[in-house]
Simulated assay, not measured.
Amino acid sequence: SAVLRAREVLFEKTVTPSDVGKLNRLVIPKQHAEKHFPLPAMTTAMGMNPSPTKGVLINLEDRTGKVWRFRYSYWNSSQSYVLTKGWSRFVKEKNLRAGDVVCFERSTGPDRQLYIHWKVRSSPV
């Protein structure tokens, strides 16, 4: 269907206990962050002051077509890339638990729309 446009999987992340805990943030593995969501490039492209610490707002669409807005930034203290604002709402609505997998995708078309998808942890066989 036209709704499910061609998309590529950028990377997947297994959610850790601290990702769904009180910190209200998802750590993006550094190699994926720098490859797919390079902060300086994103801040410049959006005409924003390239301050990675303040971060940028990114929109990710889920499988239902709902758009989620997250703040994405770099924390110097822990040297990590994180999704913060908006993440706790996503966790609550999707009922995410440690061990579930969050998948980041991007459309292959010119719009380069970003998608977020999640899968419940497969139960151990």
Rank of each mutant, 00 (worst) to 15 (best):
Phe70Met: 12
Asn59Ile: 07
Ile28Thr: 10
Ser78Leu: 02
Val67Cys: 03
Val27Met: 11
Gln113Arg: 14
Trp75Pro: 00
Leu4Gln: 13
Asp100Leu: 04
Ala33Ile: 09
Thr84Ala: 12
Arg112Ile: 06
Ala41Gln: 15
Val56Gln: 04
Glu8Thr: 11
Arg89Pro: 00
Ala2Gln: 07
Val120Pro: 02
Leu57Pro: 01
Lys119Gln: 11
Arg63Trp: 04
Lys35Gln: 10
Phe11Met: 10
Ala45Asn: 12
Ala2Leu: 12
Phe11Ile: 10
Lys22Arg: 11
Glu61Gly: 00
Gly21Phe: 15
Ile116Lys: 02
Leu96Ala: 03
Gln79Met: 07
Pro17Gly: 02
Ala6Ser: 09
Asp100Gly: 04
Ser51Phe: 02
Val102Phe: 01
Met48Cys: 04
Gly21Asn: 14
Trp75Gly: 03
Val101Asn: 02
Met48Ile: 12
Asn76Gln: 12
Leu60Ser: 00
Val125Trp: 13
Lys92Ile: 11
Thr64Cys: 04
Ser18Asp: 09
Tyr74Val: 08
Ser123Ala: 07
Leu96Trp: 06
Phe37Trp: 09
Arg63Glu: 15
Glu93Ala: 05
Val91His: 08
Val82Gln: 15
Val27Cys: 11
Glu8Arg: 09
Gly55Gln: 04
Thr108Met: 08
Ala41Met: 08
Glu8Cys: 06
Gln31Lys: 13
Val125Asp: 11
Ala41Trp: 04
Glu12Ile: 01
Glu34Met: 10
His117Gln: 11
Ile58Leu: 15
Lys119Tyr: 13
Thr14Trp: 04
Phe11Lys: 05
Val67Trp: 06
Ser107His: 04
Ser123Pro: 04
His36Asp: 11
Arg121Leu: 13
Ala6Asp: 08
Val101Phe: 02
Gly47Val: 03
Thr14Ser: 06
Arg25Cys: 08
Trp68Gln: 02
